[in-house]
């Protein structure tokens, strides 16, 4: 196993003593197969136990270890050191307040996520004994891609609209998830989500930069979901104008 040494530049911010964030460089001896998260854990275990960062599964499932790595939002567990030079810069995700070091405050996202009612709103609740809600593979296919989101927030970090609107924009992941439930054959909640989706801060704030879909580690394609939701929203608006009404 070949070893190499990297310089890991990490943005530090300790609210009790730092006025503003600053970069601290750590020299890390690392293995060929390491990812950025391994290097951060090495720092935490061997060099500086005060360094704070979120992580959990180490296999791009939990969505906790989103950082900006060399200027690009990435999952720390999916960013292999072999794909980077000997100097790697790790920062917290953009567009979120920094709580401490690489940990960001995600309360705003959680509120936005709740606002789109990301759960099935059935026409009528069935008793458990009445069995499952039946869905064909084709009906599942219609929304499955948009259900793969792990709430890692890389898309919010990459989205300039979210930053430019001072976080007013509902944003890629929440909108993609709203679209996911709207596309679900078991769901009838489109009108209940409409006031969030069709609002100015909803799908119409998206200018289709497309960065969210580029950085998404699960190929959810939030940008595509938002463009489709724009179309649905426009149709809903027009049909309501002539009094036909939507779903």
């Amino acid at each position: 196993m070949s070893k190499r040494t990297i310089q890991l530049e990490v943005l530090r911010y300790r609210p009790e003593q730092d006025k503003e964030p600053f970069f601290q460089t750590y020299t890390v001896p690392c293995e060929e197969e390491w990812v950025v998260l391994d290097a951060l854990n090495y720092v935490k275990d061997e060099i500086d136990r005060t360094l704070s960062f979120r992580w959990s599964c180490h296999m791009f499932v939990c969505g906790s270890c989103g950082y900006k790595i060399d200027g690009e939002p990435k999952l720390g567990c999916k960013a292999f050191l072999r794909d980077y030079g000997d100097n790697i810069r790790v920062e917290p995700l953009d567009n979120f307040p920094i709580e401490r070091d690489l940990v960001v405050v995600i309360d705003d996202f959680v509120e936005k996520l709740q606002s789109v009612k990301p759960y099935i709103i059935a026409k009528e609740e069935k008793a458990l004994a009445a069995g499952e809600y039946i869905q064909t593979p084709a009906q599942l296919k219609a929304f499955k891609q948009y259900s793969m989101c792990i709430n890692c927030l890389l898309c919010y970090s990459a989205c300039p609209q979210y930053g430019l609107t001072n976080q007013e924009f509902i944003g890629p992941a929440a909108l993609a998830l709203a679209h996911r439930y709207n596309m679900d054959s078991r769901d009838v909640g489109r009108s209940a989500r409409e006031h969030v989706l069709a609002a100015h801060e909803g799908v119409w704030e998206c200018s289709f930069v497309g960065a969210c879909s580029v950085v998404c580690p699960k190929d959810v394609d939030p940008a595509g979901a938002i463009q489709q939701a724009k179309f649905t929203s426009a149709v809903d608006y027009l049909t309501s104008m002539v009094g036909i009404g939507g779903k």
């Binding site: 567009n95 307040p97 300039p160 930053g163």
Partner: peptide, 18 residues
């Protein structure tokens, strides 16, 4: 210690240069 989240600023006029 008390929480003191730090918000980094984003330039409204030159953000696209980043």
């Amino acid at each position: 210690g008390a929480r003191r989240p730090y918000m980094r600023t984003m330039s409204k006029t030159s953000w696209f240069m980043t």
